[in-house]
Amino acid sequence: MNEAALQVLGLRKVYANGKTALAGVDLQVAQGAFHALLGPNGAGKSTLINILADTVRPTSGLAKMLGRDVFRERSWCKRHLGVVPQEVAFDPFFSPVEILRITSGLFGCRPDESWIRELLERLGLAEHAYKNTRQLSGGMRRRLLVAQALVHRPALVVLDEPTAGVDVELRRSLWSFMRELNRSGTTILLTTHYLEEAEQLCDHVTIIDGGQVVADRSMRELMEVVAGRYLFLGYGDAFELSEADARALSAFRPRVMSGGVCLHLGGQGGEDLGFHRVYEAAVSRLGIPRKVEIRQEDLEDVFIRLTGHARKEKSTS
């Protein structure tokens, strides 16, 4: 079996102020994966990434990159890792081109000018290459961070919120670039707040909350097994579900919604009930509906259900 690009075991981090950011996280990123690491704010994503980047010290636990111990073979692992940190900051003394050359050098590689040019072009920075970084817009700086993480051609790229503050068009071009890199063999670990992007791009998802893993599956599995599927039957605004009907359909967890009823089809870890079985049972009690829809939870719904994040936010506001 191939070594995992990244393997994290029982990683814990308690900060000096006593706050537990990671309460024993296990994570495995396969080589060549496009892996999403999701979680609400304060879930511990950045702490995990910063520990890998060596800007935060772990309290305990293990991490391996391509089979090598990250904490014992730091230099080797760092050479094969490119991290896009969440906070944008640059040395004010240098231009983008100089920053990329310096970063390349710090990673022990003589600057590859054609690769640097390609990075600047692909990330829409070519015309700003010689400006002072202070003259760049927020979105440009974030793209420069991406270029900086890629300049030494790492085998594993970790992106911590790379598209925050980047407009739609550039986000799209950034993603197509990441996809291309991924296809040519680069493993990518991504955190993002744009869940629809994660759903489109990533083939594996790990969701953490409160410093712990709450879901870890392939994207397909997550959407087939964990995401709920529902059958919505529309009967008009006057519709009411009698107690007898509710009891008869209880296997399908009926919920009355505006103008109809919603029945559980499958997912959420349960067995697949099958459209026909649910539909026929409903029709035999309620009659032919005027409208039939199949509704499917998307990644965002699943995320909210697993982390209870949206509810938490509401209750605190």
């Binding site: 800007t55 760092k78 991290v83 040395d91």
Partner: peptide, 10 residues
Amino acid sequence: NVHIYLLMAP
């Protein structure tokens, strides 16, 4: 906050 690049370098 640019010291992180030094910490991240091998």
